[in-house]
Amino acid sequence: MEALYAITLGVLVASGVYLLLRARIFPVVLGLTLISYAVNLFLFAMGRLVTGAPAVIGKSTEFADPLPQALVLTAIVIGFAMTAFVLVLALRGMGELRSDHVDGQEPRQ
């Protein structure tokens, strides 16, 4: 399971970095989103990957660490707010600069 999980994270981050380097606002936002998904999954995995272990003491002999789950929840909320902000900023940038390049102008050919 760990190998599959690690490969998933790797693919997510690789795609995110590729999109980030496209330097157009929409791909950049998508890239940031993919990277933040990968980071959230990574945080979750830091409580160790187990199946069938609830995060409650006393229900079963094995229990999962609840803290990373709480951290992920916080990270998701923050990431969501930030993504929304970037989108609004991107719309404003489109309106003011008439370009969707992250530098606000088309690169010289």
Partner: peptide
């Protein structure tokens, strides 16, 4: 401001991802 703001926001969002990876690893 719109131009500088975009760079600042994207850089710091990426920085936050690094922060979370660092914190997560340390916790793990």
């Amino acid at each position: 401001r719109a131009r500088a703001g975009m760079h600042y926001v994207v850089l710091n969002l990426l920085g936050s991802s690094f922060f979370l990876i660092g914190v997560g690893t340390l916790y793990g």
